[in-house]
Design a protein around this nucleic acid. Sequence first.
DNA 1: CGAGGGTTTGACTTGAGTCAATTCTGGTGG
DNA 2: CCACCAGAATTGACTCAAGTCAAACCCTCG
Lengths: 243, 243
Amino acid sequence: MTALHTPFALKLGAFVALSDMELNLLNQLHNRRRTFPARRDMIYEGQVERSAYILASGWVCSYKLLPGGTRQIVDFQIPGDFLGLRSVLFRTADHNIEPITRVKASEVHVQDLLETFNSAPRLAAAVLWAASRDEAMVVEHLVDIGRRDAKQRMAHFLLELGARLKLVGLASNDGYSCPLTQYLLADALGLSAVHVNRVLRELREDGFVTFQLGRVIFDDFDGLVAFCEFDRNYLDHDGPLMK
Amino acid sequence: MTALHTPFALKLGAFVALSDMELNLLNQLHNRRRTFPARRDMIYEGQVERSAYILASGWVCSYKLLPGGTRQIVDFQIPGDFLGLRSVLFRTADHNIEPITRVKASEVHVQDLLETFNSAPRLAAAVLWAASRDEAMVVEHLVDIGRRDAKQRMAHFLLELGARLKLVGLASNDGYSCPLTQYLLADALGLSAVHVNRVLRELREDGFVTFQLGRVIFDDFDGLVAFCEFDRNYLDHDGPLMK
DNA sequence: CGAGGGTTTGACTTGAGTCAATTCTGGTGG
DNA sequence: CCACCAGAATTGACTCAAGTCAAACCCTCG
């Protein structure tokens, strides 16, 4: 078994046991490497020229802008995630995508993707699976915002992010490094930045999590899971589901 | 051109101009008709036996239950919508689906669906398109809850629902009939039932919409659209996008 | 005619937002 | 190496949107 090179392969590998041939195919998708500076939108609402990307390193967020000037961050993308898969289907992008850090990503043409799927149908299943999982994530985010109070919401969010990062080897149950500012958290969780700060302090004082200096540290992982009633099942995978 | 028989065909017809052959194929999907009584879950979280349905008549909602006993309704499904497409992919359903009214639906086996796609690839594109649109809807719902106050949220929601119903011929700019109770609205919009009532009263007193006795009546459609900054584009289709 | 959802309304409470000032941090250039 | 700056993080005081509790009311259906 060869090494799993990219976060993308790592992630798909959590769903499907990948053969060397499949790993090679995945690597070939990464030939069109591009770099994006932080803060400047990669894809913006209404943009016509469509392309999809696979995130190799760095973090981005996808958000919708409201007329009032506020915005709602729909999701964060981390290494291994697909970007703009949906904007390829629609004629124009329906939301903006902004790099939070400097980002490296591989541009993927629909053509190449389809060809890859042709050669290795199991990869299609894996990608579809990953996409469904992302959608499930948005749903969970919706529940978060709709029915949890700020403190549980934050706790749940930090755990979920941790679970995703663990899939690509960027987190453990101890914690992970996280470039998100409190403003970004606020826009994602539907809170004000001030309140985000207060909530983070409370969680810290409760001895659950510490989020400071770009690192999330789980001081009491199990306690935190219990506090926000985090469902361990839906993100935990013990290994490939398809052999 | 034959009549468009089912809401499902009507909806897909908004995306792709359907040939007689394709219409026939769609109709054949509807041979396994089933009826469900109101209030009893059709699909529940954790259920293993998977099947997908196409809604022929009636309304259902998909929701997630929280440990505290509250719930968040993620989306409502109306005639022509797919049910449980995702639960076919995952081993178990990740949310519950409950009929709001008595419901008629056609059971669809993955097998049949794939065969249909094989015979008419354009239908695959249309279904994928519809699925993407549904996902975009969830995103919009997320924005609604995260960043709009209760009044705009309600206004936006009622307009969106109207737009969807219009696609299958069940609404006009005057209004539509709607079996949702204020409790259901509350669970969908992340509000309390009491506040839903207050907000509906305000919208009525402002002369925007009247929601009473199971009917939504747009007293001032344009005013309402302006009030909640509804984006007409993303749901309005003048006709098939693929000829 | 009674029962049970569903709808309305009022009085009170509270979680989260706003405004505004202060401190911390990391980066930059002299 | 240090002074300075901008962007982040903190904190306190005050406000307000939305929740909670509780009591009517009102259809509709058996």
